[in-house]
């Protein structure tokens, strides 16, 4: 197990380096003449001014030095937005509580509800409950989160006055307020994943019914419930957990941009959108890299967890 973890960590570091290089290249190479100074200086800038900005931000240095400098700045928290001059890390840090609250709450909801729905649909396959759940999950995977969010905001917030219209209240300030502001975002974000996961789990359980080891379990004299939970479900959960790891990590890294934006949560995702609006490349690059880190690190943790669930992987 230890060897597996160490090997997984090495892969993780390699992937992180590749991802940061890729992101850096995308931002630097796609800018006009490969020079962000021209963009910063504005349309009417003289070549001399552009040159001055180049030197100041180090754009005149070779590309690999720029890469190393940028990474150094990002990881030491020394990166400042070209536009707003804010410290990028501070801004991201400010958005983290909202994003984390959204991710953890929604992540738990969508994992648990999907397991419940997927299992029910599989056990009742072809029956009424399965049909209803199938329809619901089809709607779920076809529903853009900002549209569903708008519906909740209009009907539940404006019309019925049950939930607040948007925004985020820190947990430390008011637990009730925190919860009240997050219920709708949690549901909104979860719906998409519940629709997809429960379908995957359903077919995975139904496939496992044809597995030899499930037949063995039944031949051992276990009850249908024991066969389902201990064998079918237990094995079918492995791919679900892997899937969940990637999606959860992406949400933590600000991937729930649509949900965060429609509810004005001021999280990392919304920061990414705002920085795009004002062409704040350094902030966006740092968010993109942090997302990459989140995905890779959480992905590694989930892999270890999956290896715990599935002993075959450990020795593979």
């Amino acid at each position: 197990m230890l060897r597996f973890v160490v090997r997984r960590m090495l892969v993780m570091v390699a992937l992180l380096i590749v991802i940061s290089m890729f992101t850096f290249a995308m931002f630097v190479l796609l800018l006009p003449n490969g020079n962000p100074a021209a963009l910063l200086a504005g349309r009417l800038a003289t070549p001399a001014e552009i040159h001055l900005i180049s030197v100041r931000y180090g754009f005149d240095k070779p590309i690999y030095i720029q890469y190393i400098d940028t990474m150094k700045n990002i990881f030491t928290g020394q990166a400042y937005s070209y536009q707003s001059s804010f410290n990028v890390l501070d801004e991201i840090r400010a958005g983290m509580p909202a994003t984390l609250s959204l991710a953890i709450g929604a992540g738990l909801i969508w994992l648990l509800v999907s397991i419940l729905f997927g299992t029910i649909a599989a056990v009742r396959a072809g029956k009424y409950a399965d049909r209803v759940l199938t329809v619901l999950s089809m709607i779920g995977v076809s529903m853009p989160p900002f549209f569903f969010g708008a519906i909740l905001i209009y009907y539940v917030a404006y019309k019925a006055n049950i939930i607040p219209i948007g925004g985020y209240v820190p947990f430390s300030q008011s637990v009730g307020g925190w919860f009240g502001h997050l219920v709708a975002p949690w549901i909104t974000l979860s719906i998409l994943f519940i629709g997809f996961y429960s379908r995957v789990l359903r077919s995975s359980i139904l496939d496992s019914i044809n597995e030899d080891y499930v037949r063995t379990a039944r031949a051992k004299g276990l009850s249908e419930r024991q066969v389902l939970i201990r064998h079918s479900l237990r094995n079918s959960l492995i791919p679900i957990i892997s899937l969940w790891g990637l999606d959860f990590a992406q949400v933590i890294g600000g991937g729930a941009i649509l949900t965060e934006t429609v509810y004005n949560l001021h999280g990392v995702g919304e920061l990414a959108r705002d920085s795009i609006g004002r062409l704040d490349t350094i902030t966006l690059m740092e968010i993109v890299i942090l997302t990459g880190i989140a995905v890779v690190v959480i992905g590694a943790i989930v892999d270890v967890l999956v290896a715990y669930l599935d002993p075959r992987i450990r020795l593979a």
């Binding site: 597995e211 030899d212 080891y213 037949r215 063995t216 031949a219 237990r234 094995n235 492995i238 002993p311």
Partner: peptide, 15 residues
């Protein structure tokens, strides 16, 4: 009644 199946590779639960 107990049963032994054909394929021992897949008849035991891997986890």
């Amino acid at each position: 009644i107990a049963m032994v199946f054909q394929d021992p590779m897949s008849s035991l639960d891997p986890v």
